[in-house]
Each structure stands twice: as C-alpha cells, then as structure tokens.
Amino acid sequence: MKTEFYTLGSFEFPADAVVIKGKLEAEGIAVFLKDENTINSDPLISAALGGVKLQVYSSDKERAKDIFDEIRNYATDDFGNPVVCPNCKATKSEIYYSRSTVFYKLFPFFEPRKYQCMKCNFITRPQK
C-alpha cells in the first residue's frame, strides 16, 4: 500500500518545526519531519535543502491545515507589523523564494526576499 504525504510547511530551523509537530501530535495527527537530521547535523545547508519539511498523511491534510493556521506565525516587516497583501489586503503572507535562476539555486541566500499571500497566492516584494 502506497502512503501519500502532504507537506504542511517548511522551516529554516528544526526547532520551529518541532513546536508545530508537538501541537499536531497532541491533536492526534501523525507528523514526519523530512531532512530534520540532515539540517541538525549541518545547519548551513538548510536553505539549499529547502528547510525541514513538516509532513502529515494526506488523509489528515485538512485537519492539520486548520490547526497549523491557528498557531502559525505570518510574515512581518522590519517593524513587526504584519505584511499586507497589495492584491487582497490580507495579512497572512509567508516569505517566498522562487529560486528561478541557477545562481539563486546555488546561492539561495542572495535571492531578494518576497512574500506570498496565503489567501490569494499573490507574490510581492517588501515595501521600503
């Protein structure tokens, strides 16, 4: 029997994923952390691997998303204010990296930060 997984999110630091994992497991949802051990052994490659992936069974996807949305932190600007989507005015955005060129794939830390709205999926750059 083939088991399908859904990646709920990815985290630069394993500790961030472990906190969410604890909440989901307390709610009875099985959680798997892909690349956790690799990043724990060499934290400098987190960006290259795309961070620690928090995965749940596909059958638990909707319930896990609801719980995750209740407790997750959304992107904030340099002053601690929530990033506002210019398209739909929602305040639920996450940092987004496209890694669209070979240079950014090799050196992801040079890519300018962008934000993706979790409501309308609009991608924007931060306002200066």
Rank of each mutant, 00 (worst) to 15 (best):
T124L: 12
A15N: 09
E94N: 05
I95Q: 15
D16M: 15
A64Q: 05
K2D: 04
A90D: 09
P108C: 13
R125V: 10
N40Y: 04
T38I: 12
S10Y: 07
A64C: 06
Y97T: 13
K119S: 08
Q55R: 07
P126D: 11
V83S: 01
K128N: 11
I71H: 03
P112Q: 09
P108H: 04
T38G: 01
I29P: 13
D16F: 11
S100H: 12
Q116A: 12
I39Y: 05
E62C: 03
D66P: 01
Q55D: 04
C85P: 05
L54V: 04
T7H: 08
R99K: 11
R99W: 03
L44V: 03
V102Y: 12
N40A: 07
D16S: 13
P112C: 03
P86K: 13
I39E: 06
A30V: 12
A26G: 14
I95L: 14
N37P: 09
F103C: 06
T38R: 04
L44N: 02
Q55L: 07
P82A: 12
N73E: 02
Q127L: 01
F109T: 05
E36R: 00
T38W: 00
I95V: 15
L54H: 06
F109V: 08
T101S: 06
Y97P: 05
T101M: 06
P108G: 07
K114M: 07
S41H: 03
K34W: 00
Y57D: 13
Y57F: 15
L49W: 09
I20F: 10
F32S: 11
I39R: 03
P14Q: 15
E62V: 02
Q127Y: 00
R113W: 02
I71C: 14
K128F: 08
K114D: 02
E111N: 06
Y74N: 01
I67G: 09
N40K: 09
F79T: 03
A47R: 14
A15D: 13
K92F: 01
T101K: 02
K92L: 08
N37G: 10
E111D: 14
G22Q: 14
Y115Q: 10
M118K: 04
P86M: 10
A15V: 11
L8M: 04
K92T: 12
E62G: 04
A17L: 01
T91V: 07
Y6A: 11
I20T: 12
Y104D: 06
K53P: 08
K92A: 05
D16H: 15
A90F: 01
I71L: 15
A75N: 01
K34D: 13
E12K: 09
A90G: 07
Y74S: 03
D69Y: 00
P112T: 06
P86H: 02
S41N: 00
C117W: 02
A48R: 08
L49N: 14
C88A: 11
A90L: 01
F122R: 05
G80K: 00
I67C: 13
I67F: 12
Q55F: 05
A26L: 13
Y6S: 05
V83D: 01
F68M: 12
M1P: 11
A15H: 11
L24K: 09
S93K: 05
V84E: 13
P112L: 10
T124M: 15
K128I: 04
N40Q: 05
S93A: 11
F5A: 07
T91F: 01
T3M: 11
D35H: 11
G9I: 12
Q55S: 08
P43G: 04
I123P: 09
V19G: 02
Y74F: 02
P82R: 00
Y104C: 06
A90S: 08
K119A: 10
K21V: 03
